[in-house]
Design a protein around this nucleic acid. Structure first.
Lengths: 190, 190
DNA sequence: GGATTCTTTTGACCTATATCAAAAAACGAA
DNA sequence: TTCGTTTTTTGATATAGGTCAAAAGAATCC
């Protein structure tokens, strides 16, 4: 979904408001694996994914990549804690395909929050939406078996699961790649 | 921290604003294990804990209680997805001690969001704060050993860990009570 | 279109943590 | 204080899922 349409679907902005808001966004076409944020940096941009998929990941003590969150089309993406708290990011953020994204800086966003009550509302809605999404995932991870977590992913993110490498999905679901491969096989055999 | 003080610490409300906002809250003293929300209900209240501790939990397939989140003093508590999406709550919400809480209904809250830009800002700040908290926990749960998760809890919620029954902490950390008991013992021996 | 590189699958083995059961300790009411 | 109840600890045993290594399969590139 295109950005203006997406914004309007959440809050009913007037034409003028929408117009000004959009002037603060910039478009970017980025290619696969392009690092939007690197671990340690402070992330000052909020990205909207019009086309493509992105993710947030970090390198654990053994140097293995652990995917924290995926972001599909029509989502805002950023390094959450870094963006909100202006702290060094614990995560890398990248896109996983040729993607079309829009971004706004934190500064501009704060400006818009101050200027437009409705923009503030948008901010609130987006963060509560993200919050429920994360709570849901937490729930899946906390007490479900590897198999159940896979099912969760299938129903929750059917688009993403077949679009990104297996290893990334596995780490996202908190299991090893081998385990995910076996679960998938077992599922097929049924 | 008392509610007015807490609100002012986040957003600089004028005296009149603050006054009106406070009229929409009601105080309640509730005793241990009092169910504020029950699984299946739609939760329409947002609680502020002035004194006490609360939690969110659900009963899994085997009928075992799984604690999802704890809420300490100076926090807002609710059944997150239920409150935001007006969907039946997956969780029970209760306090774990004699507590002093304030609450506001969703209706009143929406009214205030609409009336005061600053109130909307408060809503946004609270949800981003909660969001980073949940992301942080997700992170701890996803790829850490039981021992590491315990350490996480010690540093993150030192106040809560000794205040609530072991079994609740264990399920919160995604491990069995026995495992937590053993970890704690090992830690003491060092 | 074959060589190279990256991703996924498979097998063998191992370990962290679950489960079950019972004892010990702590707590609360009368 | 004592008895009954709840919570925590301890021991023995089982298992889901991890790790390591190698083979198989896909994708990418000159």
């Amino acid at each position: 979904m295109e950005l203006p349409e997406f914004l309007k679907s959440l809050v009913d902005f007037s034409e003028e408001e929408l117009e000004e808001i959009l002037t603060h966004f910039r478009v970017e076409e980025v290619s696969k694996e392009y690092p939007l944020v690197e671990q340690g940096q402070i992330c000052r941009k909020l990205y909207y994914i019009e086309k493509g998929v992105g993710r947030n990941y970090y390198l654990n003590a053994d140097g293995k990549e652990i995917t924290q969150l995926f972001f599909g089309e029509g989502r805002f993406m950023t390094s959450l804690e870094s963006f909100f708290q202006e702290s060094p990011s614990l995560y890398n953020v990248e896109v996983l395909e040729e993607s079309l994204i829009h971004f706004i800086t934190k500064e501009d966003l704060e400006f818009l929050f101050g200027k437009y009550h409705k923009m503030e509302q948008l901010g609130r809605l987006l963060s509560t939406e993200m919050l429920t999404k994360v709570v849901h995932k937490l729930n899946a991870i906390q007490f479900q078996t590897a198999q159940e977590r896979y099912e969760y992913m299938l129903t929750e993110y059917p688009d993403i699961i077949y679009r990104v490498p297996l290893g990334m999905v596995a780490s996202y679901l908190g299991m090893s790649q081998e385990t995910l491969s076996r679960i998938r096989k077992k599922k097929l055999e049924e």
